[in-house]
Each structure stands twice: as structure tokens, then as C-alpha cells.
């Protein structure tokens, strides 16, 4: 949900909106190239056959700093100017799963809870009583358990899968907002500048208004 309103509501009087988020797992989104590259690699293997990322081009991945060889491999030798389209056509996917798999380009921005939602969803698979796969976060999902977490009890294996999910989420978060780093960097300069300017304006205002005391 809308973060700013949620804050306002927290200060106010509603607990409703927060309750939903409490159910989500916490995840720290990585910003470093290796994690994001690992995430991309996992995604290319586990998700890309059905899910496209049409706003990301292979060239963008190289520009971000990923290994050129790997990206070439993912693109299958196609032009790097092409977007990361799914290998399966949408029609085939609907036939297979009964639902079109959504594009993942802005996924972490398109769900309440953002990266936390996606992470919780990825690791939220479990076996129902009927022996079918279920998901805690999105029970109506048609997607089969992509990371194979169902039935895994071994601690080491579990934490490995959690790490994979975290890498995928980090990659998705980067893909949804590739200009974030540029934005934050510019933001600090702008704020520093505005702070100086405002202090100056404050002194100017005081000096100009001080004339009034002298006159009257």
C-alpha cells in the first residue's frame, strides 16, 4: 500500500493497513552488482521461460555492469537491443496455467509491500493437505513453486533457497527502478544546496525586516 498514507495512518488511528504487512517476511534488498547478477541468473533459469521483462533490454544488463559473456548467453545470441521477452508465448502460458504470467519489469513496485511481498511470495510455498502446492501470500496463484522450496526441511538448503529468493528480489528491485542510484545521488546534492540557499534566504529576510525596526 501507499507508504506515505500508511505512515499517516500509523500516526493516526488505523491498524488495519499495517496488519497485512506484518504477515510479510522481512528482506534486505541488495544493491551490489554481484547479488543482482546472481538474481538475474536465477531468474533467467527459473522464471524467464514464462515471465517477460519487456522494459529491460539485454544491453541494460551489460551497462549496469553484468558479465558480457553471461548476458550474451542469456540472449541466446540475439541482438542485445532486444527486451527480455519470455520464451513462452502468452497464449501458450494461458493454456498451460490458465492465467497470463505478468511482466516482471515493475513487479516490486506493483504490489503492496514491494520487495517484501515478492520475497514472501517466492518462499511462501507449502504442501496443502491434499498434497497440492499452496502459497501463503497469494493463495490463488497458478505458478508452480519456482525455487523448489516445498518439502525442503534441511536448514542449509532452506537458507540457500532464501538467498536465491533475495537475489531475485534484488534484481527485480533494480529492474523496477534502475535510476534509483542516480536519483539518490542527485538528491543529496539538491538537498545540500537547498539547505544552504534556505539559510541564506533566512538571513536576507531577517536583514530586510530589520529595516522596519529602525524606521518605526
Amino acid at each position: 500500500m501507499n507508504t506515505f498514507l500508511k505512515m499517516a495512518l500509523l500516526f493516526g488511528f488505523s491498524l488495519h493497513a499495517v496488519a497485512h504487512e506484518a504477515a510479510l517476511e522481512k528482506v534486505s534488498v541488495a544493491k551490489d552488482v554481484p547479488s543482482i547478477e546472481r538474481g538475474a541468473e536465477t531468474l533467467m533459469g527459473a522464471c524467464h521461460s514464462c515471465h517477460s521483462m519487456k522494459y529491460i533490454k539485454y544491453r541494460d544488463l551489460i551497462k549496469f555492469g553484468m558479465d558480457k559473456k553471461k548476458v550474451n548467453e542469456w540472449s541466446g545470441g540475439q541482438s542485445l537491443d532486444l527486451p527480455l521477452l519470455a520464451q513462452m508465448s502468452e497464449n501458450d502460458a494461458v493454456l498451460a496455467f490458465g492465467k497470463a504470467p505478468p511482466d516482471l519489469s515493475v513487479m516490486t513496485k506493483a504490489r503492496d509491500g514491494g520487495p517484501r511481498y515478492v520475497y514472501s511470495y517466492l518462499i511462501g510455498y507449502y504442501q496443502t493437505k491434499d498434497g497440492l502446492p499452496g502459497n501463503h501470500i497469494y493463495p490463488e496463484t497458478k505458478m508452480p513453486d519456482p525455487l523448489g522450496i516445498i518439502g525442503v526441511t534441511d536448514e542449509k538448503q532452506l537458507s540457500e533457497i532464501h538467498g536465491k529468493a533475495r537475489d531475485i528480489v534484488s534484481f527485480l528491485a533494480w529492474a523496477a527502478d534502475p535510476r534509483e542510484e542516480e536519483r539518490l545521488r542527485l538528491g543529496y546534492y539538491v538537498l545540500a544546496y537547498l539547505f544552504v540557499l534556505t539559510v541564506l534566504l533566512y538571513f536576507v529576510k531577517n536583514q530586510i525586516w530589520a529595516r522596519l525596526d529602525r524606521i518605526s
Binding site: Y193, V196, L197, L200
Partner: peptide
């Protein structure tokens, strides 16, 4: 005063 106003104008103009 003149200096302060000039400085502020320059900083503001640059912004």
C-alpha cells in the same frame, strides 16, 4: 547587507 543579498541572488540564480 548588499553583499548578503548579492550572494543569495547569485546562489539562487545558479540554482
Amino acid at each position: 547587507r548588499d553583499f548578503l543579498i548579492k550572494l543569495t541572488s547569485v546562489v539562487g540564480g545558479a540554482g
